[in-house]
Design a protein around this nucleic acid. Sequence first.
DNA 1: TTGCCCATGTAATTTGTTACATGATTTA
DNA 2: TAAATCATGTAACAAATTACATGGGCAA
Lengths: 212, 212
Amino acid sequence: MTSSHIAKKQDLPPTAWAVLGLLSFPGERTGYELKKWADSSLRFFYWSPAISQIYAELRRLEELGYAASARSGPEEARAKRRYAITEAGREALARWAADTAEAGPPVLKHGLLLRIWLGHLSEPELLRGMVTAHLERTRAELAAVREAMGHAADVPEWAFPALALRWSERQHLAELELGEALLEDLAEAGRRAADRSARAGRQAAGDAPTPG
Amino acid sequence: MTSSHIAKKQDLPPTAWAVLGLLSFPGERTGYELKKWADSSLRFFYWSPAISQIYAELRRLEELGYAASARSGPEEARAKRRYAITEAGREALARWAADTAEAGPPVLKHGLLLRIWLGHLSEPELLRGMVTAHLERTRAELAAVREAMGHAADVPEWAFPALALRWSERQHLAELELGEALLEDLAEAGRRAADRSARAGRQAAGDAPTPG
DNA sequence: TTGCCCATGTAATTTGTTACATGATTTA
DNA sequence: TAAATCATGTAACAAATTACATGGGCAA
């Protein structure tokens, strides 16, 4: 354990702040609980780290004095480690959250769009199938967002998480509209491609144009 | 160099496929050109890898026989390495693109939303400022998308990239609407918080409720 | 009694970034 | 002629995942 292993208080990775953020809401939590919460809420607008990484970040946050853990004593049958944010942690998190320069543009990794972009490699029907499957999945995600909204009751403490979920709900509705529009664009592109090849065929064969 | 270092043809990381995808369009390109193209187009719906990673992926793709490179000979003053996709590469890419199971849900990492979610740590005006800054940036991004659309002319070969960019354009328009709605929600939440504290203050002081 | 959920952690590996080094060509 | 851009690459590091190991409690 050399000095080079001691983490700097500045510029922690966003994941560390996200985990600390989970702890900034009232109550103490285990790493396992944090993971479940991230899966059911944070992941809609940010992302849910692997459980092993959550444990790693919790250790780092504790080392920095931003979180404190208590191993449940013998009164509880099962040994759990519950974490709570410290005053220093809350201050550091607030400073980070207020730093406008820190918040870069949103990052989107959209596997479906990558495949549409590579559409010249696939059959048109396959592309349409991928879009409809995406719409199906998005509808399921939307239901999950609404489910999460139900859990976040109308308590002042949870007002901001509720706001983030409302944003996510609208975001998923927008994603559905984008998918529908894409489906139309795909159909339109297909018609144009058919036109082109038909014209090319007629020219090659010297056919007369078909009416209508 | 043991056998364990030989990459498997199956399950390459998405980034490798994205780079191979860049090569799947007509023409040979250098790593540097790929990076520029990714920055100006791919990044809107997927993401732009670091230049060093692009070079690394190109080496891997060549090792797998999915890409072939030719060092520009003495006819060109400057030594460049131009890459082209191979038939095997095109087939593998098509197989990957057609694999529906491979395409997971889109991943979004939205720094602004993370901060809204942590709104209890910030001043309301700071939050509103972050949202308006985000709207500003999104408008600039939208302009960049449209700029890219201009470059992708109405040539059949580029029909699918053009489709992806049209999706991105709409996506950014949706992002603007989401930001506006968020701003309104923020204002509404502020009014409700003010109401609450006013009522609490009256109750504490024993004031009569104000009419209206 | 089998299997699932709770719960924590380690180890190996992969993925990806930043910093650095180098040098030619173009543009102001 | 200075600065920006083109162009390629290495090395060090950080971030993050998967696989593995372990074991208690609970329900079908």
